[in-house]
Write a protein that binds this DNA or RNA. Structure first.
Lengths: 152, 152
DNA sequence: TTCTATGCAAAAATTTTGCATGTCG
DNA sequence: CGACATGCAAAATTTTTGCATAGAA
């Protein structure tokens, strides 16, 4: 992925907030943009420290928070004591189906649901910042696998 | 709250799953049913251990899981590293607006959103078990408080 | 030069678990 | 009696933090 523009915007973001532009931060945004779309922090830490020996765990945690403020990372799934993050370019918000059996994540976007949420917030004089809709269940593949057992 | 019927059902649930019917379990369902609708476990542990000296932290954690299986407790909000549970009788599912400033939780239910979710699952051959929709933002009261500051 | 970022290890916060003992069926 | 539940303390897991040092502005 070409992260040139992204990095420019991130530089601007850092400057605006009086944060320093460091090699670590620029490298991390690069690595994350090119890593899996969905990931857990621990996994990311292992990846980063096994391949390139860049940042410490503490810095990675701190940078992930920064990138959430910047808006290109979201906590999309909170299940048990795990958090799954998603790298996401600004535009494309969507929600997720999560298979509780295999962990598969299926993205979906439904304009009507989004609009209904807006309406609900208006009705409650609530100013929404972000939302998270997680639908947990069994994906197609896992359903197929389980069917034969249920037939006994 | 009259928990007689609830406890009967819980007894049946325990029997069905070959769990034992213990004083701890029956007392805990009573306490939780009469505690706050929305709560965190740590808070509940403190409450239980300060008032009646009933169960240990371990037993409370284990019982909360049981009650989730039983279906009268749900993890409705996962924010930062906190989990907020809700005591909920089987019927009334709903979702939540969460004020990130004061922590206020506003319940809402929208049939259309529920139906649309069903449709989406069907389309993906996904068998949903449960879902969680959290809308984070600012509640009416906090908005009012912040307005004057923003006007400066 | 000054202030922020970083790494490290330690601490904090939350949840789980092994094991000896108690209790239910 | 035998199996499961409980309490305790220890361990595991995930995240945060204090502090000394390095690096950006």
């Amino acid at each position: 992925m070409n992260t040139k523009k992204l990095k420019e915007e991130f530089r601007a973001f850092l400057k605006k907030h009086n944060y320093k532009i460091t090699k670590n931060r620029l490298d991390l945004i690069d690595i994350i943009a090119n890593y899996k779309k969905h990931f857990e922090i621990e996994e990311l830490v292992n990846y980063i420290q096994n391949t390139q020996k860049l940042a410490s765990r503490a810095t990675i945690y701190r940078t992930v928070k920064l990138l959430m403020d910047f808006g290109i990372i979201k906590e999309i799934i909170k299940q048990n004591n795990k958090t799954i993050y998603e790298f996401c370019t600004q535009e494309g918000h969507h929600d997720h189906l999560v298979c509780v059996s295999c962990g598969r994540i299926i993205e979906f976007f439904n304009e009507d649901i989004e609009n209904l949420q807006e309406e609900i917030c208006l009705k409650h004089n609530f100013l929404p910042t972000y939302h998270r809709l997680e639908i947990f269940g069994l994906c197609e593949q896992c359903l197929k696998k389980k069917q034969p057992i249920q037939e006994k």
